[in-house]
Write a protein that binds this DNA or RNA. Structure first.
Length: 202
DNA sequence: TGGTAGATGGGG
DNA sequence: CCCATCTACCAG
């Protein structure tokens, strides 16, 4: 588990090293094809932890090898693998994967997926396919938890890097990693400014 | 094929 | 008010 020992300062290397690892939960296994690094050391304004420790991001500050799960837009969940040393905030967001086992179950959980390649090509979709939600937060990935992580059975192959998705700041930081050419990698969308909801009353 | 409205809840 | 999102629907 080489990525486990990587210090938080190299959370980008940890995120990259997670590509190809297999995540299993509730009868479905995905091979990770896309990740993003978040450090929260104060130099990373995109991180949930960059303003310091709160109830929500506390898990990011804990020991490596656990899941940091948060809810977004009121209805979806995203999962991170906590990295780095205990006491330092660092995590790798799991953005996409290829379903390599339990495909039928995955299809049932995501009936809107038109092809198997898009079953888990996004962080929210990945969680739906695995049947995980906030209950998986602060849960160990190596023994005893609802989700488990296993080393790659095949080499990840060439890796590409670029700016993180949905992040308004730090566009110059190439901390999104994906397996080059993999069809299950999420479609990159440049952050589009949300339509101004018109200030004040009409 | 690309833009976007709306769903929906919690954080700061 | 902001979102580390997704789907459906629309125009061309």
């Amino acid at each position: 588990m080489s990525w486990r020992a990587l210090p938080a300062a190299r959370v980008d290397e940890a995120a990259r090293a997670l590509l190809g690892w297999r995540l299993t939960a509730n009868g479905v296994t995905v091979r990770l094809t896309e990740t993003e690094a978040y450090s929260g050391l104060g130099a990373d304004p995109a991180s949930h932890a960059h303003r310091g420790r709160t109830d929500r991001n506390a898990v990011m500050f804990g020991p490596a090898g656990r899941l940091y799960v948060y809810q977004i837009y009121g209805m979806y969940f995203c999962a991170n693998v906590v990295c780095g040393e205990d006491g330092v905030a660092a995590a790798a967001l799991l953005r996409a994967g290829a379903v390599i086992d339990g495909v039928d179950l995955a299809r049932e959980r995501r009936p809107s997926a038109r092809t198997d390649a898009v079953l888990a090509n996004g962080p929210g979709k990945l969680m739906q396919v695995l049947g995980l939600d906030r209950a998986a937060n602060d849960t160990p990935l190596f023994g005893g938890g609802p989700a488990s992580l296993a080393p790659p059975d095949t080499p990840a192959g060439p890796v590409s890097a670029g700016p993180r998705v949905g992040v308004t700041s730090a566009h110059d930081v190439p901390w999104r990693f994906w397996i080059t050419g993999d069809p299950t990698v999420s479609a990159y969308r440049r952050h589009s400014p949300r339509r101004r909801p018109s200030s004040g009353t009409p």
